[in-house]
Design a protein around this nucleic acid. Structure first.
Lengths: 199, 199
DNA sequence: CCACCGATTGACTGGTCAATCAACCGGAGG
DNA sequence: CCTCCGGTTGATTGACCAGTCAATCGGTGG
């Protein structure tokens, strides 16, 4: 919980917000719910953040920048597109495994809510698509992937599949067990890459 | 405006709602916006519907039942999984081509909003996944698809890719031209099916 | 011509919350 | 011991809106 010296209230509020957002959804979360969950006065939320929206923004930006970094790192690493895409999917699935609440909030309230909140972050989100597209493009350049699929198209299909699986776990449409995550990553990458390879 | 005989106000309201929901999103649409758009008094909306929610429900159910029917029909038709999945993706893409506003509303406000509204319709939505999974399963049975991918898993990946492409068009992440839709369908089916076929 | 009835109208109510703000507290520094 | 100041408190305000309901309209049949 709170560390010895500062008891960083800002962090306390952010972490509490994740829990409440995950439980009730952003829209039906009252600012007072966040304050209560954090064990903090209502007004303090407004001391650290300008609005309820900004709390969500902060959570999203924090994590999404990690994803963008992970995509770039995967791209820089050795190996073919199969390995690179495996790293990307692995990072996303691991994020969920490590902090399901946070990923649920990000996926459900931002990424998939592209009309309301997502609109604001479309640029950031698009950057992830483009990073994945770049991996595909390089794979095509090296002949590892066939060239008749637009990289952005392949990227969207790949990311869409990843997110849909995540959503399936989040909402219990498909069962999730510890081992499923790695298996899912391999299976997904295999399927998509086999489909993208030259015949 | 009003047609000669009945001027079906209920329909008028539903169609107006589609336009307004597509423009502003469900959440920031006031019931008065719908009434204004339909050229009808505020109270009349409540004469035909119990709540703002029910308006959206109605729109979703109307169209989703068509999708479910289309999936079943595709499954009953002759041909391998490739043809069947092509029909499913084709139906969805055509739905968007034919009535982008309605599809935008359904995807953005229901299907992808799995926390709020989607929760109510999870059962219906799941039925679509299962229909697609059945097609995959049969393809595995006949040896047309490899058997080491769980049908539900493949179904989610397939549907996720479809929905992501749709979202890309809806939000302008990827450009959409008339010819793109059919091309996208073929490309997507090719990619996914190649990935699902025995090697 | 009237009585009736469902469709239609829109002003109003009740309740909900995001955001504000004035007051409070406790420690650092003088 | 006092002052100052930033972190902290929570009651209050003001806006917003879904849903209600009593009144009106217009068509139909007797």
């Amino acid at each position: 919980m709170a560390q010895a010296p500062p008891a960083d209230k800002r962090r306390l509020i952010l972490d509490a917000a994740v829990r409440v957002f995950a439980r009730q959804g952003f829209h039906s979360t009252r600012v007072s719910d966040i304050a209560d969950e954090a064990g903090v006065a209502y007004g303090l939320v407004y001391h650290y953040f300008n609005s309820k929206d900004q709390v969500l923004n902060e959570l999203f930006t924090e994590r999404w920048s990690l994803l963008l970094a992970a995509i770039e790192e995967a791209d820089r690493a050795d190996g073919g597109p199969r390995e690179k895409l495996g790293k990307v999917a692995g990072f996303i699935f691991d994020s969920y495994r490590h902090d399901p609440d946070l990923m649920k909030v990000i996926i459900v309230e931002v990424t998939r809510a592209a009309n309301s909140f997502g609109q604001t972050h479309l640029e950031q989100i698009r950057r992830a698509y483009e990073g994945i597209a770049r991996i595909v493009e390089e794979g095509q350049g090296s002949g590892a992937l066939r060239g008749d699929v637009a990289p952005m198209f392949a990227s969207m299909a790949f990311y869409g599949a990843v997110e849909q699986l995540l959503s399936g776990w989040i909402f219990g449409t498909i069962p999730a067990s510890k081992t499923d995550f790695d298996q899912a990553r391999d299976l997904l990458v295999t399927t998509i890459c086999d489909g993208l390879e030259p015949r």
